[in-house]
């Protein structure tokens, strides 16, 4: 019987080795697989190359991994954010390498790797500093730059629901980099809120079919769903973390929608 579910999150990431290239899903805080990153931090692998859209928020998740000095190089599109002080400090101190890639080229490099395409021509970046000296070619009178696929040893992704076959569904804009990254790594590890029985997921709506997934780690309802906190704090409408605020039980109708009846929010 196929069973990709690994209950022990530390066991799920135990083979991530020093020097590995690791893709980490998420756009800002949405879709960031915080529990897997925390496990990676406990595991202690270092000298990592991290592929992720951003370079960490606040002091948790990817930012904590950076702070611990485990990352040699970041490949990302937008490291500079209002809460990216950890990366900013390392970069200014010359303690981390940065490969800056336009977001669309970044995701297409990932998609191409997963689809067996070694390189492609993109219109994005032509004539800019980021592609100085890069091979270009004209098609139909328009210039394109040659961009190479980007493969990883591991992908760490946050999904919403999965089954033991590795079929994964996402939630709202937290989908972002999940589906392409799942295809582009030798080993793909997905943390989900909930593992459901085979057959429960709508076969018409599986953004990541199980063929791309090696391990599924149920982490329980993320902290914000039952008690109003989320990866280090609730966010306000500007995406800023807030420490205190509305009564989470009263205020988070979305959270209630999100949590199936009869499931407790404990982890």
């Amino acid at each position: 019987m196929i069973d990709k579910v690994v209950e022990d999150i530390d066991a799920a990431i135990a083979d991530i080795h020093d020097g590995a290239t690791v893709m980490i899903g998420g756009f800002g805080r949405a879709g960031q697989p915080v529990d897997l990153i925390d496990a990676l931090l406990r595991h202690g692998a270092g000298d990592l190359t991290i592929v992720s859209n951003n370079a960490g928020n606040g002091d948790v998740g990817l930012a904590a991994l950076l702070q611990a000095g485990k990352v040699r190089k970041m490949i990302c599109s937008f490291p500079r954010q209002n809460d990216s002080w950890v990366f900013d400090g390392l970069y200014r101190a010359g303690e981390i390498e940065l490969e800056l890639v336009p977001q669309g080229n970044l995701v297409e490099r990932i998609r191409a790797a997963g689809a067996g395409i070694p390189a492609f021509y993109s219109p994005t970046g032509v004539g800019t500093l980021l592609y100085e000296g890069v091979e270009t070619r004209e098609f139909g009178g328009r210039e394109y730059v040659l961009v190479e696929a980007l493969h990883a040893d591991f992908a760490l992704i946050q999904g919403y629901r999965a089954d033991r076959l590795g079929n994964v569904q996402y939630r709202k804009t937290a989908r972002n980099f999940g589906p392409p990254m799942a295809t582009a790594a030798t080993t793909t590890i997905v943390q989900v809120d909930e593992v459901v029985p085979v057959g429960d997921l709508d076969a018409e709506s599986i953004p990541t079919p199980g063929i791309f997934v090696d391990r599924v780690v149920p982490v329980g309802w993320r902290e914000w769903t039952p008690d109003g906190r989320y990866v280090g704090g609730l966010v306000d409408v500007n995406g800023q973390p807030v420490e205190t605020g509305i009564d989470p039980h009263e205020g988070h109708t979305k959270a209630t929608d999100h949590k199936p009846s009869g499931t407790e929010g404990t982890r």
């Binding site: 949405a30 977001q103 709202k172 999940g178 966010v235 409408v237 509305i246």
Partner: peptide, 30 residues
């Protein structure tokens, strides 16, 4: 959204909380 309906899984490119209108669709970055 109003403060009571902020959903951390539903943000815009500026990483601000937003809402979905009827007929909305979600898709990956690619």
């Amino acid at each position: 959204p109003d403060a009571a309906h902020v959903d951390p899984d539903l943000i815009n490119a500026g990483k601000q909380a937003v809402t979905e209108l009827p007929g909305a669709s979600y898709f990956n970055q690619s």
